[in-house]
Simulated assay, not measured.
Amino acid sequence: MIVVFGATGTIGAPLVTALLAKGAQVRAVTSDASKIDALKSQGCEAVVASFDDPDALAQACAGAQKAFLVTPADLDMRSWKANVIAAATKAGVKHMAISTGLGASPKAGLTFGIWHSESQELLKESGMDWTLIQPTYFIQNLLWQAGNIAANDVYLDDLGGPISWVDARDIADVAAVALTSDGHAGKAYGLTGSQAVNGDEIAALLSKATGRKIVLQHVSPTESHAGMVASGMDPAVADAMVQLSGLGPKGYLAGIETTVSDILNRPARSVADFITQNSAAFKS
């Protein structure tokens, strides 16, 4: 049994699908009771558990041999991961793969890198076998702007530099391999796409996919922070997001890792293909 925490999220949802396709027994965990039936319809177990509920987390881990853990970017993400790691350890889970972030390490100079590193070190100290899944920016984040792009023909760029965007489905596929085959314990997998794409290139791809001229509009760090806070994000998390995006103009988010192709024996999914496949979302 493989238990997937965050089973309805950007990584967790395709991971459940990928694991079931491999014939694995899956227990999907969500905090949203309204999503239980949809999860069960895929052929997996499904349970409700809040990251703040140790008893529910313990029940979710019962009888599982392996686990995958991902949480939203939140001020409580470290305590949430600590709760799951503790529950899994107590339940006798043997191997956990945890999604953190590219560059997370004890020496990280960024807030997210430090937060993720704390969780990684906690997992390493748990006694479980571990695999670190460390992605960069998700291509799926482009869909956050679908409504604005469709309505205003504007792509808002708060990154200001080339980004080696990675598809969350590739992250899920790598995690599925790590949890269903040997040789992945004790490994840290940095995950990116196969090329770095800047804002001008994304606007051009959106223009081609929609048949309309999509204009690039740069967003300042101050505007970006204000927008995130207005959407409900904790100011401290927004600070960390702005700090991370500030690496974009320096080219520090453009590095390429070959992990996806190395593990999956196929090319990483591209930004161009993603935009083409989701062109309807940017039109309506």
Rank of each mutant, 00 (worst) to 15 (best):
V93P: 00
G183M: 10
A175M: 03
L15V: 10
P267G: 14
N265S: 14
S99F: 00
A240K: 09
D200Y: 08
L253Y: 05
I171L: 10
A204F: 00
T258E: 12
A172M: 02
Y189M: 15
V166D: 05
G63C: 13
P14E: 11
W115K: 11
K124D: 10
A150Y: 03
K35E: 01
A196N: 03
A104V: 07
P249D: 02
V93K: 02
S164G: 14
A236K: 15
Q277W: 06
G248D: 04
W165S: 03
A38N: 08
T131I: 06
D53P: 01
G186K: 04
F112M: 13
Q145T: 09
Q42P: 00
I263L: 14
S41F: 01
K250C: 02
I263P: 13
A86K: 12
V4N: 07
L110K: 02
L57N: 00
A104L: 03
T258M: 05
D55A: 15
G103A: 02
D74Q: 06
D52N: 15
A172K: 06
D157E: 07
G113S: 08
Y252S: 13
H225G: 10
D55P: 01
L159P: 00
D153W: 02
G183A: 09
V166T: 10
A97R: 07
S31D: 11
S41Y: 02
L132H: 14
G43C: 08
A46C: 08
F5P: 03
Q277I: 01
T259S: 12
I171Y: 10
I11R: 07
V174D: 14
F282A: 13
Y155K: 06
A226Y: 01
L57E: 02
A21P: 02
S245G: 06
G12E: 07
I214V: 15
I149D: 05
K250A: 13
P221K: 12
L143Y: 05
Q195I: 12
L57F: 06
L110A: 08
A185P: 01
L123V: 12
V271Q: 03
L264Y: 12
S279Y: 00
M128G: 08
V229Q: 02
R269G: 12
I133F: 06
L15W: 11
G23I: 08
S41E: 12
P235F: 11
A175L: 09
V154M: 13
D173P: 09
Q120A: 07
K35Q: 14
Q277P: 00
K213I: 12
G255F: 13
T192G: 13
I214L: 05
G161T: 10
A46Q: 07
V84P: 00
T210Q: 09
P162W: 05
Q217L: 08
F138R: 03
G43E: 05
A97Q: 03
A254W: 07
Q25A: 15
A38G: 11
E223A: 15
Q42I: 01
G12M: 05
S119D: 13
A13Y: 14
R269P: 06
L122C: 01
T8K: 13
A226R: 04
G43T: 04
G9T: 09
P267W: 03
S181M: 01
L206S: 07
I214K: 06
R269N: 15
I114G: 04
G193N: 04
W165N: 00
M233K: 12
V70N: 10
A281D: 13
G227N: 10
G12V: 06
A108S: 15
A150L: 06
L39T: 02
F274Q: 08
A62K: 15
